[in-house]
């Protein structure tokens, strides 16, 4: 896309910005010029795959912090950060009953920044559950589920469930007394589902108690299955915000 620019004014900064942001390589990557003019600011949002989740303009109430408290954004930020720290943890972790605990213990003692990564992953996971709850309460109390956003609220409820499932499957992975018993308690609850309970429990555990088979199932769900499903629903969630006219605001 050809973008016409005003000629640069005099001065060193203008010369520098011209050299840095208006050259052939920059243009090949970003298409638009440096976002210093309204035109470029809109173009950068519209032509960037990540930024184009946003509209190019929005109503001024939407940037007021008390309108949203950024809670949905913070939840998404937690999801991204958890992906990064989770990938780091995957380098050192083998989901086998005889290794998992040692691997996690080694993260804490033998691996540089291993403890920090594990702590970050743990606390951000709790943070994500909390921010998802708070986001739901924000959306409810601001009446933002009202037409035409009914379906997006439903997608949000599914994402809440997925967040809990992600957290629950991750809970088992350290393979310590806390994790195995928390999951045993949780799975016993799942086992009481009328009609399907036992089968569902068997499906998730791969056996009659929390063991090797359960660990590999929880691991697979935690690192690829559920994140993939959550990412799909997130894409729908964000897409629908745009389609339904942006954030809710007084009519």
């Amino acid at each position: 896309m050809a973008v016409s620019e005003q000629p640069p004014g005099p001065g060193l900064t203008n010369w520098l910005s011209e050299k840095l942001f208006h050259n052939y390589i920059w243009r090949s990557i970003f298409r638009s010029g440096y976002p210093s003019t309204p035109r470029n600011q809109m173009l950068v949002v519209a032509t960037n795959v990540f930024l184009h989740l946003h509209p190019t303009r929005l109503h001024k109430t939407h940037v007021r912090i008390t309108h949203t408290y950024c809670l949905g954004g913070i939840t998404f930020f937690f999801f991204l950060s958890l992906t990064v720290t989770g990938v780091m943890l995957m380098f050192y972790y083998v989901p086998a009953a005889d290794r998992a605990f040692q691997d996690v213990a080694a993260l804490e003692t033998n691996i540089r920044f291993g403890m920090l990564m594990r702590n970050l992953h743990r606390w951000m996971a709790h943070g994500m559950v909390i921010s998802v709850f708070l986001h739901m309460m924000r959306v409810f109390y601001t009446g933002s589920y009202k037409p035409p956003r009914e379906f997006n609220w439903l997608v949000g409820v599914i994402l809440l469930t997925l967040t809990l499932a992600l957290s629950f499957t991750g809970y088992l992975l350290p393979w310590d007394q806390l994790s195995i018993w928390a999951v045993t308690v949780g799975m016993n609850m799942a086992g009481t589902v009328p009609v399907m309970g036992q089968q569902q429990q068997l499906l998730l555990l791969g056996g009659f108690e929390v063991g090797d088979a359960a660990l590999i199932r929880f691991y697979t769900l935690h690192v690829i299955g559920l994140p993939l499903i959550a990412a799909i629903f997130m894409a729908v969630h964000f897409w629908r915000i745009r389609r339904d006219g942006g954030l809710a605001r007084p009519l």
């Binding site: 809990l164 629950f168 007394q177 609850m189 929390v210």
Partner: peptide, 28 residues
């Protein structure tokens, strides 16, 4: 927060030793 507060890691999982009380994750 992560530099100050360490994530818990108890003893290795053992289905023969039931902690009392055994609790689900906090949101459950």
């Amino acid at each position: 927060l992560s530099t100050m507060l360490d994530a818990p890691l108890l003893n290795q999982a053992n289905l023969d030793i039931t902690p009392n009380p055994s609790k689900a994750a906090w949101y459950l």
